[in-house]
Computed example of a mutant assay.
Amino acid sequence: MRFVIITGLSGAGKSHTIRAFEDWGYFCVDNLPPKLIPTFAELCSRSDNNIEKVALGVDSRGGVFFDDFANVIADMHDRKFKFEVLFLEASDNVLITRYKESRRKHPLATDSRISVALKLEREKLTKIREKADHIIDTSNLSVKDLKAELSKIYLSDMEASGLLVNVLSFGFKYGIPLDADLVFDVRFLPNPFYDEELRGKTGNDKEVQDYVLKYRQSKEFIDKLMDMLEFLLPYYTEEGKSQLVIAIGCTGGQHRSVTIANIIHDKLQENRHWAVIDHRDVKKSLGGHQP
């Protein structure tokens, strides 16, 4: 299990960081009192929980609880917990500007100026910063740049773009997926449904795949679609998109769409993209009627 504690100066980007971790499938909890961290870590580490990635946000909003943070970190090291501390910081000028633009109050600025609160917060966080595994200065980083820096540390090579590509096969007679970003219609391809030996099989079976792929237009479509996706994906990533759903449909979602979706998924993975596959309607159409 990867267990990350996210902390640092207020206004340095913790909320954006937690949202990035959520996009990457982490179980996230924000503003947990430090004294509860060891108990929470122990609960998450139990094998029956099936939690593989956890991110906790801890900052000075915890008030008096926050003063225990350094002792909690030391105690977790003593108890041999496996965890990482990510520390976010920025220059005072940048932080003051961010607070003025957001019109929010610094959690430690009860009756003082932001500059005084920042100085106090830096003092409180000195020991934590010294023990941090990773320190990121967000002074000159946009939200997109911050996510890119985080991905270098917390994502595998295949996930490094931060863009999860969902390849989805479906049947038009069951409706177009509502969450689809790109929809492609492969009903122009010859239909294996009309071959009685293939009717009860799916695009996951080699016989159906061989049937669909023996046609020139099938191979040309795959080549042209991959060429377009390789053009588009870097731009989706650059714009900060975290998930893309590519829906490929045929009449019933059993033969042609499943075959093409499988191939597109495999090619994306071969090209080091973070891709997953789902066949929404393959079981619905087995034995069914197609017009």
Score class of each variant (00 low, 15 high):
L178R: 09
E159N: 02
L182R: 13
K152W: 04
Y174T: 09
I176S: 10
V183Y: 10
D157Y: 10
H134P: 01
S139F: 10
I128D: 01
S139M: 01
M158Y: 13
L198I: 04
F193T: 01
L198P: 05
K173H: 01
D145P: 02
I114S: 04
F172S: 09
I114Y: 03
F188N: 15
Y154P: 15
L146W: 12
A132R: 03
L178K: 06
L155R: 14
T202M: 11
S151R: 07
I153V: 04
K127Q: 09
E130I: 04
L108N: 06
D111C: 06
K147D: 14
K131N: 13
L146E: 03
L125T: 02
L178Y: 08
F170M: 00
A160K: 14
L178M: 12
F184Y: 14
S115L: 02
F184V: 15
L163H: 00
E121M: 06
R187C: 04
S161K: 12
K173P: 14
K152L: 13
S112C: 14
R187V: 01
K144H: 15
L189I: 14
D133H: 05
P177Q: 12
K173D: 00
T110Q: 14
V143I: 12
V183S: 13
K124Q: 14
E149A: 15
K124R: 13
L178Q: 08
S161R: 15
V186L: 01
G203E: 03
T202P: 12
F193L: 11
I128Y: 06
I153F: 02
L163Y: 01
S151Y: 08
L198Q: 13
L189A: 15
D185R: 10
D133K: 05
D195Y: 07
A132N: 10
E159G: 00
A148I: 07
G203F: 10
D185E: 07
D111W: 01
V165Q: 08
L150K: 05
F188H: 08
L178D: 09
R129N: 08
K127F: 03
S151K: 10
K201Y: 06
R129S: 01
D133F: 06
L141K: 07
E149N: 02
E130Q: 06
E159D: 05
G171F: 00
G175M: 02
T202G: 13
L108M: 02
T126W: 09
E123H: 09
D157Q: 04
L168I: 12
K124T: 14
K144A: 12
I153P: 10
H134L: 07
D133S: 06
A117W: 00
K124N: 12
K131I: 03
G162H: 09
V143E: 11
K127W: 04
I128K: 10
F184W: 13
S142T: 08
D111Y: 00
G171K: 11
R113L: 05
L155A: 08
A117V: 00
G171E: 02
E121L: 11
K124C: 08
D145L: 07
E197Q: 15
R187F: 04
R122F: 01
G162F: 00
R113T: 10
E121C: 07
I135Y: 04
A160M: 12
D111K: 07
K144T: 07
